[in-house]
Simulated assay, not measured.
Amino acid sequence: MQGPAVFMDISLEDQAQELRKYFKSLGAEISEEKSPKGIEDDLHKIVGVCDVCFKENNEADVEAILNSIVSIMVSIPLERGENLILAFSQRLTKAPGPKLGMVALQSLWRLYNNLETNSPLRYHVYYHVIELAARVGSVGDVFKGVDQLTREFASCPPSNEQMQKLYRLLHQVLKDQNSELAAKVMIELLGTYTDENASYAREDAIKCIVTALADPNTYLLDPLLALKPVRFLERELIHDLLNIFVSEKLSSYQTFYQNHKEFVHSQGLNHELNIKKMRILTFMQMAESNPEITFDEIVTELQIEEKNVESFIIEVLKTKLVRARMDQAARTVRVSNTMHRTFGRAQWATLRDVLQAWRANVQHAHDSMKSVAAAQIEYAQQQQKA
């Protein structure tokens, strides 16, 4: 995505008049004469008809015109320019077709990058940038992740309501393109709610859960249970389903599905994909307490045919959630390490024991090195005396 605006050598007033003449020639209802009220009024008039340029067949000409408007826009004081910025952004989001849409996106992105970093108008432009980028398939060019978003608005943070609106838009445009990133965005959205207003986030919380469950790359779902809006869903079916994916086995999901088929499908969830994920999660849970798992146990617990056991284990290893090796002769899987599905008090206690053992080993190694060094010094002193 291109950056700074390209500035023309002629004065802003003359540049505005050239734009007036150009739009007039395309049939726009605008006078060719400069406004007696000054350049800001000229700009209002120009923005009001700027989308007429989309009639042009030449993309380079459209880009030059839009860049000229951007050059004027960022060169004048815009203390009262919110309506002007919004009008221009909204018209550009309606650029027809992917090619002109990309041209409009590049011009809108220039406008965004040429506004002062402490300008509250940047939020409004960025929102429309995302709308337009989604339409032309270029969201990845302007949105890299939630950390980048935080940096973008560090100098002038939008209001909580504005960020919620932006997160909802991002989730909407990302859910079919990048489900993992969409889930992260939704978690950020839920994090904007407090104890006082978490009860109003029901729809967002449900979307967050469904997105995470449907994402084929998301397996560790325990953190969702700590989100305030999710806690307000307790005793609802969607919360029960989340709990199954967090800590239960395949059999629990199958029972839930038999009792609530319509609910699962109404959420847009795919039963077969749910089964696939629950098999992997169940295997992880088996691996936590059993370093050696037989093929028979896998067949029984995961309800798969024995001929599919090896291909299943390969799929599990691809996720990198479990480290293991198969012994086909012994018909076993030997687990060396596995991620925990939940991280509660027991896991913290285990981590504490590991860290304490590590610290003791480091201290022992340090003491041993000191002893070796002292022995070498003593030996050297004895040699000198001899």
Rank of each mutant, 00 (worst) to 15 (best):
Q164S: 07
G191I: 01
Y112S: 04
C50K: 04
T294H: 05
L174C: 08
L227P: 05
L321A: 07
I72D: 05
A226K: 15
E236D: 11
K228D: 00
A154W: 12
H44L: 12
T93D: 00
M278Y: 04
W358P: 06
Y253I: 08
A380D: 11
K184H: 07
P4G: 07
P157K: 05
D367C: 05
R341Y: 09
L166K: 06
N337V: 13
F312C: 02
K99R: 11
Q303G: 12
D195V: 15
R331K: 15
E32P: 09
H124Y: 10
K55F: 11
N160Q: 13
M278H: 02
I30L: 09
K55W: 10
E79T: 12
K276H: 09
R334C: 08
D353E: 13
F256T: 07
P4H: 12
G38T: 04
R235D: 14
R352S: 13
R359M: 14
Y193H: 05
I187L: 11
F143H: 01
A95M: 07
K318Q: 10
V362P: 04
A226R: 15
L269I: 09
P120N: 01
G81L: 03
A182Q: 05
E288V: 10
A214T: 03
K99T: 06
G48E: 07
A212S: 13
M278V: 05
E306W: 04
A357F: 10
E18L: 12
D176C: 09
C53Q: 07
R168D: 12
K21H: 10
E40I: 13
L190S: 03
L86E: 09
T342M: 03
I314Y: 15
G81S: 04
S368L: 15
I46G: 05
R135C: 02
M339G: 10
T300R: 13
L221T: 06
F153T: 02
S107N: 03
K45T: 10
D41L: 09
T342S: 06
G137S: 04
D353K: 14
A374Q: 13
E248W: 00
Q90A: 11
Y379C: 11
A330N: 01
M8P: 09
A373F: 11
K34T: 10
L170M: 00
Q164D: 08
